[in-house]
Amino acid sequence: MQGPFKRGGQRKPMGEINVVPFIDVMLVLLVIFMITAPMLNQGVDVELPQVSSEPIESQENNDPIIISIDREGQYYLSLGEDSTQVSAEDITRRVSAILEQRPDAPVMVRGDQNVAYGEVVVLMSNLQRSGVANVGLISEPPQNE
């Protein structure tokens, strides 16, 4: 009798492993990872570092235009020592009027840390519409330094 059987009905131990099911599982896992890998990069939690930065050198005759947002979401426009409360709609008009007189004036945003990120994005979009090419963000150094 041929095959793995000996006389007397006993089976001969088989020394080979069937790897076809393992290959099938590996191919399925490969397909799953190929589909899910691009989705993993979209929702990454990022904890921003706290670093100290060097202050920007201000020009002597060029006071910056500073737009501040307090924790209630109210806007303030500061030019030199003068600070006035403005509405979100007036910021575009006033900043563009100032930039017509002083086109090289730097524009800075000073926002409270408790203001929603969306408020700052809306403000920067309004500033872009008023013709501001570059916007600086004002921050403070970390407390532990």
Results as ranks from 00 to 15, higher is better:
Val95Arg: 03
Asn61Lys: 02
Gly8Asp: 00
Glu16Ser: 12
Ser52Lys: 10
Arg71Leu: 01
Val31Ile: 15
Met39Pro: 01
Gln10Asp: 00
Gly15Glu: 03
Phe5Trp: 09
Val28Lys: 03
Gln10Asn: 09
Val121Ala: 11
Arg11Gln: 02
Pro38Trp: 07
Leu127Thr: 02
Leu79Gly: 08
Arg71Gln: 01
Gln2Lys: 13
Met14His: 12
Gln59Thr: 15
Leu29Gln: 06
Ser96Asn: 08
Val28Ala: 15
Pro55Trp: 06
Ala133Arg: 12
Met1Gly: 13
Val95Leu: 02
Pro13Gln: 11
Phe22Gly: 06
Ile23Tyr: 14
Thr36Cys: 14
Gly3Gln: 11
Ile138Tyr: 00
Ser53Trp: 04
Val20Lys: 15
Glu100Phe: 08
Asn114Tyr: 09
Ala105Gly: 09
Ile56Asn: 04
Glu47Trp: 03
Gly111His: 03
Tyr76Trp: 05
Val107Asp: 03
Arg110Cys: 13
Tyr117Met: 11
Phe22Asn: 07
Arg71Glu: 00
Glu57Asn: 10
Ile98Ala: 05
Phe33Gln: 11
Val135Met: 04
Val120Cys: 06
Ala116Thr: 12
Ile138Ala: 15
Pro55Phe: 11
Gln2Met: 09
Pro13Ser: 07
Val25Ser: 13
Asp45Phe: 08
Gln113Thr: 13
Ser96Glu: 05
Asn18Leu: 02
Ile138Trp: 06
Ser53Asp: 00
Pro64Met: 00
Arg94Phe: 00
Glu60Phe: 04
Ala133Leu: 14
Pro64Ile: 00
Leu123Cys: 06
Ala133Asp: 14
Tyr75His: 09
Asn126His: 01
Ser83Leu: 09
Asn134Ser: 11
Glu81Ile: 05
Met1Phe: 08
Gly43Asn: 14
Pro142Ser: 02
Asn114Ser: 13
Ser58Lys: 05
Ile32Pro: 00
Ser139Val: 10
Ile66Phe: 02
Lys6Trp: 01
Arg129Thr: 15
Pro4Ser: 14
Tyr117Thr: 14
Asn62Lys: 13
Lys12Ile: 02
Pro55Gly: 07
Pro4Met: 07
Val132Ile: 07
Gln113Lys: 09
Pro4Val: 11
Ser68Asn: 07
